[in-house]
Amino acid sequence: MSTARTSIPVLDLSAAKEADGSFVPGFLDALRDAAHHVGFFQVTGYGARHGQEQELLDTVAEFFRLPLEDRLALDNRRSPQFRGYTRLGTEITRGRADAREQIDFGPELEPLADVPADRPYLRLQGPNQWPAAFPALEKAAMEWAELMSHVGAELLSAIAVSIGLRADHFDEPFAGTPAWMGKLVHYVGTGVVPEAGEQGVGLHADYGFVTLLLQDAVGGLEVKPYGQETWIEVPPIPEALVVNLGEMLEVATDGYLMATIHRVTAPPAGVDRYSVPFFWSPRLDAVIDKVELPPALAADARGVSDDPENPMLASYGANVLKGWLRAHPETARIHYPELVGPTHGGAAY
């Protein structure tokens, strides 16, 4: 077993390419090391305009200071796409309430008119819910999503090259209508949601390919790399993104790249924390095949994580719907009653 990691690497995306557009070998080596051994890293130099990060965080904070009735006008229980406002303490991770409220959003598309019964995840395509009286939120969030889509695609190309694949290897699953997801999250101080205890969000892995997180200065994110018992704190770095890999890359590489478990500790009493995670994810109908790794890397593949209560699925749409059904039991019971179990909204799908 390799030496336990105690910190999160930091990479400069602005120095990732040579003048001819190819990736710098040293960058690829550092990226591969971080992706294989930690599953988390931070990136700087990713192309945000000056001040964009703080503007977004300030806009998110301003939204969550609106009266509760304004936020409830966007209640996600009305959305088969699980979009809109999630009330404080109602998202569930590992069977326990999280100490956060949030807005979930994605590509603005019309719902599909005809969804086959055996592909219910296609119902996740649809519209967002935004506050009409506060248009700054939609503007800032969708501008950020456009930037993150470019960053996610660039990083995924670099990851592909770093493990011996063509830069465009993962392009096809994203062609057309990639089902990226974004969240605007407000964590509340310990004690505001008594049943959450110190859980901001419980330990979990992400569903898609690459997650890009903008966090404020409060901190609280912790990660647990494969084979380690100790958690690593992810310190906030101004204007940096925290990057982690999702379950689709673990499936594709037979565990050479891992969807690393992570969690967020709720802030101290009286402190608010804001973050904006973005999940660069493929089309809902994408099915991810295993890749052929170079022999030296294949020898270090650890296999896909075996969790009988939360199996990883090669179908992206099925994998993400499974997660949403567990995380949002009330919305699941309203819109997907045939897919949830009799208690706690447990996913039967």
Rank of each mutant, 00 (worst) to 15 (best):
P295L: 02
F105Y: 05
D98Q: 01
T265S: 10
Q215R: 05
F63M: 13
V242D: 03
L325G: 09
P238L: 08
I237E: 09
G270V: 12
Y226E: 13
G89W: 08
Y349S: 14
P107E: 02
A240N: 02
E154A: 05
V291R: 12
A299L: 09
G345I: 07
D75V: 02
Q129V: 00
L13H: 02
V185M: 12
T211K: 02
V192I: 13
S275P: 11
L214Y: 03
T260Q: 05
T44Y: 03
E292I: 13
F40S: 04
F279M: 04
I8L: 07
V38H: 08
H36E: 13
L109A: 02
T90P: 01
A132Y: 01
Q54Y: 04
M142L: 08
E69M: 11
E53P: 03
I237A: 05
M258R: 15
E143A: 15
L165W: 09
E154S: 10
G106R: 00
W130F: 04
D33F: 10
F41L: 09
G26I: 01
K139E: 00
F82S: 01
A327T: 14
A196M: 02
A348C: 14
H37A: 12
L165M: 10
S2H: 15
P236I: 11
P67A: 13
L293T: 11
K17V: 03
A252G: 13
I159Y: 11
P268W: 05
R326P: 06
D98Y: 03
S14W: 00
E247K: 15
M142T: 05
T90L: 07
R166S: 14
A348V: 13
T86D: 02
L321I: 09
P178C: 04
Q42V: 04
V291Q: 11
D114H: 10
L221C: 04
Q102F: 07
K183Q: 01
A314Y: 07
L88E: 06
L203P: 15
R283V: 05
F64Y: 15
S149Y: 02
E69I: 10
N76T: 02
P282S: 10
V151P: 00
V24N: 12
H335W: 07
L124D: 01
S305T: 14
F279E: 00
T253K: 12
G51N: 07
L28Q: 10
F63H: 12
P308A: 12
G270N: 10
A99C: 04
V115W: 06
P225Q: 08
G21T: 09
L88P: 07
V291I: 14
M142G: 00
D118F: 07
G164H: 11
A48H: 03
P267L: 07
G47T: 02
E138G: 02
R94N: 13
L212S: 02
F82Y: 08
L31K: 05
V151F: 03
W130I: 00
G84Y: 01
D58G: 12
R326N: 14
V188A: 09
G45F: 03
L293G: 13
V264L: 06
R5K: 14
P311V: 12
T44A: 04
W144E: 00
R263A: 09
D171C: 10
A132Q: 05
E198R: 15
L66R: 15
R326D: 11
A269H: 11
V43W: 07
I232M: 07
L13P: 00
A117H: 11
P67Q: 12
A113V: 06
P282G: 08
H344G: 11
R78W: 00
A299M: 08
A347V: 12
